[in-house]
Amino acid sequence: MTPLLPKRMIEVEIDGTPVRVFEGQTLLDACRKVGVDTPTLCYGDTLEPKNACRVCVVEVEGARVLAPSCSRKAEAGMKVRTDSDRVRHSRRMVMELLTSSVDLSTTPDAAGYAERYDARPDRYGPAAAPNPDRDRLRAGHHVEPDGDTAATVASALKDDNELYVRDYGKCILCYKCVDACGSQHQNTFAISIAGRGFDARISTEHAIELPESACVYCGNCIQVCPTGALMFRSEHEHRAAGTWDEAAQTVTKTICPYCGVGCNVELHVQHNEIVKVTSPADHDVTRGNLCIKGRFGFQHVQRR
């Protein structure tokens, strides 16, 4: 290993419980160390914390505003509250704001968080009709609402290639796919955030379809997507047909059959059919990543 200075331990207090963590670790690490279950949505362990969703906020004594626990580094002597009224309020509101504007039906944990914090997303009114021009909305301009309905990010399914589909009506804009496609993993930069504010969306340049774009179908965006907005075609079709059955699936870790890098793949198998391929986030070789062959090139064992 590269010679590193030994890390110092520092002590912080989580809800009155002292806990020692390494310098550089986050408040989320500290919370987890003392067993405080902290909700997260945009946090991904292979990516730099983006702290965009703000569902993980905690109250640091003496600070004017709440701190995102996923990214705030622990400092010696910090006193942290994870269940104060302010924290509960922010978590509830974040879940309300997301649930009322995004289809979270395939976001694991979302319903649980909403229930835990007593979110009442229906109080913002019925969902507004989808905006068909969402891909081209101009920054700084919007149609004035009448308040009778609640705006959402609903948009048409993007179904433009054989391998995966994109349903941005389910997107919480956590930036993880952009970071994974970009400088943190794949460095292909096929997608970015376009537009601004509530109209911000994940987009290729000029919203061109993926086959025209730089996309190399590594699927590393699917791997990090916390909402199911990005989905294997096989999973999408099984779900549409009502045959998606996670209880009947096995997940087997093995090695990709192609080049000599030795990428770890996890085969999700339902009734002897590979329905999805993931990669372990905690393995040094891949860190959750694969290329198109490892992610999608498994058909040869199914069609012979």
Partner: peptide
């Protein structure tokens, strides 16, 4: 604020929209 929010974090991105909708309802009386 709804127009100028950058869109990065949920409280501001969605909160400014919901705030505007609430003001709109106060205006309309509905």
């Amino acid at each position: 604020f709804r127009s100028e929010s950058c869109g990065q974090c949920v409280p501001c991105r969605v909160g400014t929209v919901r705030q505007q909708e609430a003001v709109a309802r106060l205006l309309s009386g509905r």
